[in-house]
Amino acid sequence: MTVSRLRNIPGIGVDRMGDAADASKNPNILRLENLDTDLRPPPEAIRRTHEAVDDDTANSYLPFTGQAALRRAVVARMKQSAGTEYDPESECIVSAGGLAGILNVLLSILEPGDEVVLTDPTYAGLINRVRLAGGVPVFARLIPGADGWRLDLESLARAIGPRTRALLVMSPSMPSGFVATEAEWAAIAAHYVRPDAWLVYDAAMERILFDGRRVIHPASLAGMRERTITVGSVSKEFRMIGWRVGWIVGPAPIMADVRLTSLSNVVCQVGIGMPGATAALTCADDGVAAAVGQWQARRDFLLRALDDLPAIRPDGGWSMLIDTEQLGIPAPEASRMLLAKGEVAATPMTGWGPDAARYLRFVFANEPVSRLADIRARVRTAWHL
C-alpha cells in the first residue's frame, strides 16, 4: 500500500525519458529531456576538488552546517546579488544540493495542511517536495505570450488564503524560463510582507538571464529580508551538477529550525565537493557570463528554427516549452513520436502544474548548435508537420 504522502506524487517524467534514451544506445539522439549541460565547470573548482580527494579534513562529517570558507563565500555572493548582509555562522547552512535544501526548508516551516503557492508551470520536483513535507500546493498561473511568460497577478491574489504559509518561486523558473520583472516581484512582496508567511526563493539559475536582464533578488525589496529564505547551488550557474552542493540563507530565527531539520535529514554535505564549490564562488572568472552567452545562442537558434511552432520564449534558464496541444498532439504522444521518429528525447510536462500538461520541454543546455542544426526537420518528420 502506498503511504498517503506519495499518493499524489506522479514522479517527474525526466527519469523515464532519460532511461528510454539511454536504452536506445543511439548517439544520434538529441538529449533535450534532462537539465544537464556540456559546458565545463570553472577550472579552479575542478582543481580544488581534485586536491580535496587527498585532503583528510574534507573526508569528515564536520562541520555539520558546512565548511566555514564556503559559508563565507555564499554570504558574500548574497551581498552581491541582494545587497544584504548575512551572518555566515547563524544565517547560512550548506545543503547536499539545492533541492535537499528546499525540502529541509519546507519541513521547517510547514504544518500539515499548510498551503504553498507555486507558479504553473513549475518544476515537478518542487511540487512533490511540498507534498512530501505535508503541504498543499496551490498555483498562480504563468501566462505565455509574445513577450514570453508573465505572472498572472490576479491568479496570484486568488491563490493566497488563510492557510498560505509560503510562496515557492524560481526566477528564472524551470521549465518555462519565466523571469520576474520588478513589478511582478513588487506584487509578490506586497502579499508576503506579513508575519505568518515566507517567500522561499529558489535561486539555482539566478544569473542565467538573457537579453541583458539583471538580477533582482527578492531579499533586496523593502521589508523582505526577514521574510525571504534563499536556496542556491553550484549545479546550474557553475555547471557543477555532480558536486551536489547547495546552500540555504535566511534570517537567524528560522535558520535555527532549518539547522535542526538538516541535522535530522541529510546530516551533512559532500565533503570533497565543498572546496570546489568555494573555489567556484570566489575565483576570478567563474565562466557564468560566457556560459550564458552560449545558452542564449542555443535558445535563439531554437526559436528561429521552430518559429512556426507554438514555442514560448524563455528569458533565462536552460529550457523552453512548446504547446503541443495547439498542434493537436497531447504532449506525452508528441514526446513518444519525437523519440521514435525524430531521434529527439524531450519530456512532457505531466505533473508540472495544472495547466502544464499541454507542454513539451526542450532543454537547450546540453546540445551545441551544431547538433541542433536539423531540429526542425526532426520535428517535422516526427509530427508530420
Rank of each mutant, 00 (worst) to 15 (best):
R16M: 09
G177T: 08
S235L: 10
V249T: 04
A277V: 11
A82H: 07
T350W: 07
S95D: 02
M174W: 13
S81A: 08
G161M: 02
L126D: 11
E367S: 05
G135P: 01
A373D: 10
G11A: 01
S233P: 05
S81Y: 08
E237P: 06
N8T: 03
A69N: 05
M170D: 11
F301D: 00
L32V: 09
A377L: 10
A252G: 12
D19K: 11
L338Y: 03
P137D: 04
G328S: 10
D54V: 09
N28T: 13
E325T: 14
S173Q: 07
D323K: 05
L338Q: 08
S264K: 04
E325I: 12
V130G: 07
E85M: 11
F139Q: 03
A289G: 00
D114T: 13
L132S: 02
H191Q: 10
E91L: 11
W383E: 05
G223D: 12
I9A: 02
D211A: 14
S235H: 13
P253V: 11
P42F: 00
A340I: 00
A180G: 12
G177R: 09
A73S: 14
D202A: 04
M170W: 07
Q296I: 06
L126R: 00
V75L: 06
V94D: 02
G177F: 08
P310N: 13
H217E: 00
M205R: 15
I93L: 12
F178Y: 15
A289W: 00
I143D: 08
D374W: 00
L99T: 12
A133F: 05
R244N: 12
T84K: 13
S171E: 00
E226N: 14
D307Y: 10
L107I: 06
T278A: 09
M274C: 11
P175F: 06
A373C: 01
P332N: 14
T228Y: 10
P121M: 12
T181S: 07
E154P: 06
N34T: 14
L39S: 04
P354M: 13
R40V: 03
Y86F: 15
L106G: 02
A382H: 06
A345C: 09
G271C: 00
L168C: 02
H50V: 15
V249Y: 01
V74T: 14
T381N: 14
L153M: 04
R244K: 10
A124D: 08
D374T: 09
R158H: 05
F178S: 07
A45M: 03
L156V: 00
I9W: 07
R371V: 05
T119Y: 03
L99M: 15
P162S: 08
A284R: 08
M17P: 09
R207L: 01
R225E: 04
G271Q: 00
M337T: 11
S4K: 02
L263P: 06
L35F: 15
D196H: 02
A291R: 09
A311V: 15
